[in-house]
Simulated scan of single mutants.
Amino acid sequence: MFVGRYVHSIIFILGFVGNSLVIVTYAFYKRTKSMTDVYLLNVAIADLLFVVSLPLIVYNEMWSWSMGPVACKLLRGSYSVNLYSGMLLLACISTDRYIAIVQARRSFRLRTLPHSRLICTVIWTFAFLLSFPTFYFYHRFENDNTALTTKVAVPSTQLAVGFFLPLLIMTVCYTAIIVKLLSVRNFQRHKAVRVVLAVVLVFVACHLPYNIVLLYNTAIMFQQQKCEESDSLKVAETLTQTIAYLHCCLNPVLYAFVGVKFRNHFRRIFQDLWCLGKRYIAPRRFSRVTSEVYVSTRRSVDGSSDNGSSLTM
């Protein structure tokens, strides 16, 4: 339990800092000029919303949902919304990259900012609709036949829409991209191939173990299990879920910080923060130093006048 809390704390810190930097960059330094920019911004928002709710989820699990059923539903529902929106947005990024590289002639007509904003609106709406059963039925799984059906439908939908569909889209698109890039003898293109492979491998490594456990757990949901098997399955689910949580920390690195332009904006953020800190701290230090000099001068002047008066007497 302690190790889990430690890992979740690291995920929270890295995910909060990384995704906040992505949002700040797009808000103040880099305008959303392409569909990928719009998707990256929305992915960062989805990941940030998740990592903000992560400490509350851990707290509730430690204290047996002491915050009450309403908070439980909201937290689990928000996790579901962020899961669906984040995964589908990653699929949109792979589709956009496919159109830009493989279908370059059509990219000017298809890759427009109004289209990307419309697609993001549809994805967020779709994510809320898919998450509605989690909001509504979370504490009624044992008391209602409809809720029992939902208990099977929720993880099944999560597997289908939240993992296998994005994985299929990413596999098809990035395979076509790799074939296209390998046909061009260019160092930058081959470097891009490595980035594409890293994106797919990290996605699979983070989410595949948890979804395998989720699939197995759904398949044996209504079967009787021994205590040892149930405990082992619970431990496996917790460990693989923690690995899946890591993906929200890696998204800023994979989809944003690997770009040279984005790293330059990232560097500018720290430079501006440093300059802002110097502007804020330097006047205060200056005023404090001058006040100390003034007090010490007053003391020295007062002391010299006392000494002088005593000498004259």
Rank of each mutant, 00 (worst) to 15 (best):
M1Q: 05
S9D: 02
F12H: 03
L14D: 01
D37L: 11
V38F: 04
Y39K: 05
L49C: 14
L49Q: 07
V52S: 10
P55V: 01
L56V: 11
V58R: 12
N60P: 05
N60W: 00
W65G: 05
G68R: 03
G77H: 02
L83E: 01
L83V: 04
G86T: 00
L90S: 08
C92S: 10
T95V: 07
Y98E: 03
R105V: 09
R111E: 09
C120P: 00
T121Q: 04
W124E: 02
T125Y: 01
L129V: 11
L130S: 02
L130F: 02
S131W: 00
F132E: 05
F132S: 09
E142Q: 10
N143S: 15
D144G: 02
N145G: 10
T150S: 13
A153C: 01
T157E: 05
M170N: 12
V172L: 14
V172E: 02
T175C: 12
V179R: 09
K180F: 00
L182H: 08
S183V: 00
N186D: 15
F187S: 12
A192D: 09
A192M: 14
R194H: 12
V195D: 11
L197E: 08
A198M: 14
V202C: 14
T218H: 04
Q225C: 04
Q225E: 09
K226R: 08
C227W: 02
S232P: 00
K234M: 05
E237Q: 11
T240H: 01
A244T: 11
A244N: 09
H247I: 11
C248K: 09
Y255F: 15
A256N: 14
V258D: 03
V258G: 07
V260G: 11
V260P: 02
N264T: 15
D272Y: 04
L273R: 07
C275G: 12
F286A: 13
R288G: 12
V289A: 13
S300Y: 08
S300D: 13
G308Q: 07
T312H: 00
